[in-house]
Deep mutational scan, measured.
Amino acid sequence: TFYNFIMGFQNDNTPFGILAEHVSEDKAFPRLEERHQVIRAYVMSNYTDHQLIETTNRAISLYMANL
């Protein structure tokens, strides 16, 4: 899942690491979701930090390219 992918960046001092920290603390994050459209919609609806949203979009693109 995307959640498992992004958790691989925990403790990294990178934008993906920052995203992983936010996702791990977000109890409502769709952890079992595999459809990138649902993940993107969730982030757009629940996150207000523009940098975090952009990082999510980049992470989703990388995740999709590696499926």
Rank of each mutant, 00 (worst) to 15 (best):
A28K: 11
L32H: 14
T1W: 05
R35L: 06
H36M: 14
H22C: 08
G8T: 14
E21F: 14
F16M: 10
K27M: 11
H50T: 13
A59P: 01
I60E: 00
T48Q: 11
A28H: 14
E34Q: 15
R40F: 12
N46P: 03
Y42S: 01
F29T: 08
N66D: 10
K27W: 08
Y47C: 06
E34L: 13
F9G: 00
F29P: 01
I60C: 05
Y42F: 04
N46A: 09
E54W: 06
T14V: 03
I18S: 08
D26Y: 06
F5I: 02
A65N: 10
I6W: 04
S24L: 13
H50V: 13
Q10C: 14
P15D: 12
V38N: 07
D12P: 06
Y3C: 01
Y3I: 02
D26R: 06
M64L: 15
E34W: 15
S61K: 13
D12A: 10
L62P: 00
Q51E: 13
K27C: 09
L67T: 12
N4T: 12
M44S: 08
L67S: 11
T48G: 08
E34F: 15
D26P: 03
I53D: 02
E54C: 08
F2N: 00
F9H: 05
T1Q: 03
Y47G: 02
N4S: 13
M44P: 00
R58M: 11
N4E: 14
V38S: 08
T56L: 14
S24R: 15
A20K: 06
N46F: 08
A59W: 05
H36F: 12
T55S: 07
I39R: 00
T48N: 11
E54F: 07
T14P: 02
F5M: 01
E34H: 15
A41M: 11
D26F: 07
S61I: 14
F16H: 01
A20V: 05
V43N: 00
N57V: 11
V43W: 03
F9R: 01
V43D: 01
S61Y: 11
N11A: 07
A65T: 09
H22M: 09
A41F: 08
A59K: 03
N66K: 11
G8K: 13
E25P: 02
T14K: 03
H22I: 14
N57W: 11
L67C: 12
L19C: 02
D26W: 03
N46G: 04
I53L: 10
M44V: 10
H36D: 07
H22D: 02
Y47Q: 02
A20I: 04
M7N: 02
S24E: 08
A65Q: 12
F5E: 00
S61A: 15
N13P: 12
D26N: 03
H36C: 15
T1V: 05
E34M: 15
E34I: 15
M64E: 09
R35I: 04
R40G: 05
E25H: 15
S24T: 08
G8A: 12
M7Q: 06
P15Y: 08
F16W: 05
A41K: 09
A41V: 08
I60A: 03
Q10H: 12
M7L: 10
K27P: 14
